[in-house]
C-alpha cells in the first residue's frame, strides 16, 4: 500500500514538473496548430460582421489564387537552389577545416561567421552588393566592361540573388555538423587508407562520404525546414517582388495576415505550410527507420 501511494505520488510529481512547460507548449504550439485548421474553414470576421463558417471556400479560393501557385513554385526553386549547394559546400568546408591547413583557425572562423550574424543585418550588406550601378557587383562588372544590371529588380535573377545569400548564410552552419561527425570517425581509417596508397579524394568518396550519410540526412532535413522558414532576407532585399517573383510561402502568409489583414486566408495558407512540415516529419521517420543501423 505505501508503495502504491509512493508511485502515485511520483507520477503526480512528474506531471507537476512538466506542467509549466506543457501549458506554454499547448498554448503556443498545439492550440494554434489546431486553431489554424479551424480558422481556415471560416471567413475573416470584422468588428461588424462575425466570422462565418464557409467550409472549404478558402481552399477553393487558394487553388485559384495565382500568387499562391507562384509562391509555391518559388519555394520549390528556393529549396532546390539552396539545399544541394549548401550541403556540398558544408561538406567541403568541413573536410578542409578538419585536415592540416595553413591558417586553419581563421578559415574555420570565416566559414562559421555568417551563422552568428542576424539575417536582417547581412541582408543589409548584401543589398548593397546587388544595387544597380553603384552596387559592388556592378562596380566590379563595370571593370570588366560589363554593363549594369538590376539584379533584384529583374524577375529572372531575383530568386537567384536570394539563393546565393542563403547559401552563404547557411553553409557554415551545416559545416559544424559535418565537422562533429568527421571528428568522431576513427583516425585509423585514414591511416589504413594511406598505407594502401589511396588518395585523399578517393578515400573521401569511398569511406568518409558513406559514413557521413546519417549527418547528411540530418542536415538535409534541417535544410528543407529552413527553406520554408527562412524568409527574413526578403523583408530587406525585395519584399517579395518584383511582381511576387521572390515571394516565399511564409512571406506570403505574413503579407496576407498583416498587410492585407485577411486572417482566414492566412490560416488556410498556414495549413499548407503545416502540411509540408508534417510530410517532412513523416519522411524523416521513414528514412531514419530504414537507416537505423547507422545509429
Amino acid at each position: 500500500m505505501p508503495d502504491r501511494t509512493r508511485l502515485v505520488g511520483n507520477a503526480a510529481y512528474g506531471w507537476l514538473l512538466l506542467l509549466p512547460a506543457a501549458v506554454l507548449l499547448a498554448a503556443f504550439t498545439h492550440y494554434p496548430a489546431v486553431a489554424t485548421l479551424a480558422q481556415s474553414l471560416f471567413t475573416s470576421g470584422t468588428a461588424l460582421r462575425p466570422a462565418e463558417f464557409t467550409g472549404l471556400d478558402n481552399y477553393r479560393f487558394m487553388l485559384e489564387d495565382e500568387v499562391f501557385w507562384r509562391v509555391l513554385e518559388n519555394n520549390a526553386w528556393y529549396a532546390i537552389g539552396t539545399i544541394p549547394i549548401s550541403i556540398a559546400l558544408a561538406m567541403l568546408m568541413a573536410v578542409w577545416v578538419n585536415r592540416r591547413l595553413p591558417l586553419r583557425a581563421f578559415v574555420r572562423m570565416s566559414y562559421f561567421t555568417p551563422t552568428v550574424l542576424p539575417m536582417i543585418a547581412v541582408a543589409n550588406i548584401w543589398l548593397f552588393f546587388y544595387t544597380p550601378e553603384i552596387g559592388l557587383i556592378d562596380q566590379i562588372a563595370a571593370g570588366f566592361g560589363i554593363g549594369s544590371h538590376n539584379w533584384l529588380g529583374n524577375p529572372d535573377t531575383v530568386l537567384g540573388c536570394i539563393i546565393v545569400l542563403t547559401i552563404w548564410k547557411e553553409a557554415g552552419f551545416f559545416m559544424i555538423f559535418y565537422l562533429a561527425a568527421l571528428q568522431s570517425l576513427p583516425p585509423e581509417l585514414e591511416e589504413a587508407a594511406r598505407l594502401e596508397g589511396a588518395g585523399h579524394w578517393h578515400f573521401f568518396r569511398r569511406v568518409t562520404f558513406p559514413l557521413l550519410m546519417p549527418t547528411t540526412l540530418f542536415v538535409l532535413i534541417n535544410a528543407v525546414i529552413n527553406s520554408f522558414k527562412l524568409v527574413d532576407q526578403l523583408f530587406i532585399l525585395t519584399k517579395g517582388g518584383p511582381d511576387n517573383a521572390s515571394a516565399l510561402l511564409l512571406y506570403y502568409i505574413y503579407e496576407v495576415a498583416f498587410s492585407f489583414f485577411d486572417q482566414a486566408y492566412a490560416s488556410t495558407l498556414t495549413v499548407v505550410l503545416l502540411a509540408v512540415l508534417a510530410i517532412i516529419a513523416i519522411g524523416q521517420f521513414v528514412i531514419l527507420d530504414k537507416r537505423i543501423h547507422y545509429r
Partner: peptide, 8 residues
C-alpha cells in the same frame, strides 16, 4: 513558433 504567427 514562427510558422504560427497568425494564430499566435
Amino acid at each position: 513558433p514562427e510558422v504560427l504567427i497568425v494564430e499566435n
